[in-house]
Structures are given as structure tokens and as C-alpha cells.
Design a binder for these strands. Sequence first.
DNA 1: TATTCAAGCGGAGCAACCCTCCGTTTATCG
DNA 2: CGATAAACGGAGGGTTGCTCCGCTTGAATA
Lengths: 214, 214
Amino acid sequence: MNTELCSVFQVAAKLPKNSADDTTGGAMRADARRNRDRLLAAADAVFTERGADASLNDVAKRAEVGIGTLYRHFPTREALLGATCDERFLTLAKQSRERSASLSSIEALRVFLEELVHYAGIYQGLAASLGVVLRSGTEGCHATTAEGQRLLEAAQREGEVRGDIRLDDVVCMAMAISLSAAQDASGPKRIPRLTGMFIDGLRPPREARGTRHR
Amino acid sequence: MNTELCSVFQVAAKLPKNSADDTTGGAMRADARRNRDRLLAAADAVFTERGADASLNDVAKRAEVGIGTLYRHFPTREALLGATCDERFLTLAKQSRERSASLSSIEALRVFLEELVHYAGIYQGLAASLGVVLRSGTEGCHATTAEGQRLLEAAQREGEVRGDIRLDDVVCMAMAISLSAAQDASGPKRIPRLTGMFIDGLRPPREARGTRHR
DNA sequence: TATTCAAGCGGAGCAACCCTCCGTTTATCG
DNA sequence: CGATAAACGGAGGGTTGCTCCGCTTGAATA
């Protein structure tokens, strides 16, 4: 069915209480917590190595955990993928917030887009569902979209980006760039150039540009 | 021509002689031709119904043909997908050639991209493998990539598109737009805007633009 | 510390799918 | 009408997804 691509992360809500690094004073048994963490680490390794559709048996094996345990913690592949990426998106958002203070609005947006492209490429095949992923509502994804929205609006307020651009459009760009970069060995080297190019495309006609730089 | 273009046609050789509607005075046995046609019809039906990653056993069953026969005619899912889309891509290329005579180079490229996005959506989930499908080597896929290359080079010659853009990049844009549009109900309406946005990103900085218009 | 039991574990096992291999059938040609 | 090579078909081996259920164990309680 088509749901493979689109359903990524929809299931987010069903996950166990505590996120990977938790601290939500969990009612979770110690061995369960341990296994969950091992699974997340193993999943990250395996997905990195073999792509987002690697065998879940491999993940369980690498975690030295029964396959049943994997499915109890993460009822679907999407749930596992979601939990695995969530942390990363959390740090993406956080780092962007810190960094943006010392950058111009358009430059902050550019770096954000570039980072998004990188994150979309951490697992082979993840880029294709990036849009849905970000809409999943998990903590990290929510933080990332909120940050992107913030940067976009700031750039628009300053007249550095056309007013009719939406965050979805930026996400779509990230998908395209990531897909393009994944095609051949020289891809990664082209990311900054492609990113800069498309950010340029977002700018308004020169005569109408910039309340700040004028 | 440049090596980039070559990558688009790499796999071309492996397919059977005659394309879907053939007329290449085939050395193909009558039963083979018949089965091939039935397979194409069945594949189109099944892919339409269940998406581009439907079971190939189902396709064979619907065609009332052994699974071995399916694989002999179409060694990979992409080959089958490519052959199934072949006619459509053929018309895409043809219409683009006709249309482009009365359009500016950049506008012709924009419409081509938009059309490509539409074609990528005929089967649910086809967009995800659009790049591979276009490389399947069927006549229509070849015609479409050739046409895209032609439009791209024309726009570049006129200084309307940056020289370092490759056809692969354009295909990736189509994939991203199609995937993005497939994500929600309002998607299709956003296709023209997204397409325009990407085309804008392809243009060179304004001061360096256009040998023709000025 | 000993007892208790639900939460958690693990992996056998079934179903679905992909794809190959090879014995059988048959279209075509002389 | 043979002869023969092309084409057929589906059994079968390998992989993966996911469930189910008997066994293990953490930790609450006394």
C-alpha cells in the first residue's frame, strides 16, 4: 500500500511514556528502559548503515534483544523511525535557536535549510518522507517546525523572503536537495550550493528587498 | 555529451526489443507479445488500484500468466513500471516539444517540470522511484529525459538557468514536489506555486541574467 | 529477606513477498 | 510434419514482517 511513505510517524502517540533520554519519572521497569535504549541505539546504527528500510530483525539482533521486544516497544517501523529521529530533530531546533542570534535572518534561514537537508539524509530513504515526518507532532519534530516557522517569519518581516512562501515550501526544498544529493558520490559537496541557490529563489525582486539592509 | 546526462540512460540495454506499442518488426514470438501486452494491461490496473509497490504476483495473476513470465519480460519492478508508463512519457515528451516552440526557454522548462510532477503522481508511490523509472530505458522514458535535457540546455545557453544545474536535479525537484503534494488534500493546488518557486531558484543572480532579453 | 505476580522477555512460526531455476510446452521454420 | 529454440509456469528457497504465548524477572510488599 501507499501508506509506507505517508504513514511515517503518524503513530507517534502510541509510544511509551518516556522519550529516549526521558527523565519523565517513568513507571517503566528498569530492564524495559534498558532494552528500549539499546533498541534506539541499534536502530540508529542499522538505519544509518543500511537505510530507513533495513530489516527490523537486524535491529533486534544488534540490540541483542528478541524481535518480540522490539515490536512491543515500537509497534511499527514508523514508530521506531520516529523515536530514533526525534532526538536529532530536537537538537537541530536547539542549535538553530542558539545560532540564529548571531546571524542575519536570511542567513539563519539558509543554515536551517542546509541542516534540514543533512538531517533528511541521515538515513538513506528518509528524505522522501521528510514532510510527513515533520508533521508527526513528536516533540523534536514539533520543535523543528516551530523553529523553521520562526526563522521564515523573521526573514519575511525584514523583507528578505517573499511573503507568499510557506514553511511547507521550504521543507519541500529540503526534500529535493536531499534527494538530489543522495544520487551520486559528489552529491554531498553540492548541498551548500544548491541550498544557497534555492534561498536566492525565495528572495523578493531586488527593488522590493530588505527593510534592514535596504 | 556530458557525463551527467549519461547517468540517466545507464541501464538502457536490458529491456526486450519492442516497446509497448511496438511496430518494430519484432522477432518476438506471438505468444510472447500477447503475454507482454497482458502484463502491461494488468500492471496498469494493479498499480492504479494498489499503488506502485503492489505485489508483482498479483500482476501476474491478473494477467493470467506465470510469475516467471513476468520476470522474464520485466526483470525489475522499475522495468515494469517504466514500460507501463512508457506511452504516457512518450506523449509528455511530444507535447513538450510542440509546446516549447511558442514559449520562452525558461517558461518551457517550467511547464515541463510541472508536467513531470503530474506524471509522477499517476500511481500512488510512483514519485518515490521516478528517478529510477526514468532510467529504465524504455522509449518514452528516454524521450522524456532527452526532452528535459534539451530544454535545460536551451535555458542555460540563454543564461536563464545556472550552468551547473543537471537534469537529475530537475528530476529530484519533480519528485519532491510530487511527494509533497501527495501528502495532503490541498497538495495538487500547490503544484504550480512550488514549481515556480523551484524554477526561480534555478535562475542565475539577476545581474548576470539573460543574454536574450536584454 | 522471602514471596508474589504482572510486566517484560524471547523466539518459534506463519504469512507474504521476491526472484530464480529448470522441466515442460509450443510457435515457427524448413 | 518434425526439429528446435524460444517462451512458459510455478515450485521452491530466501528474506522480512509481525504475532502469539510460555518463560523469566524486577520490584512491591510484608
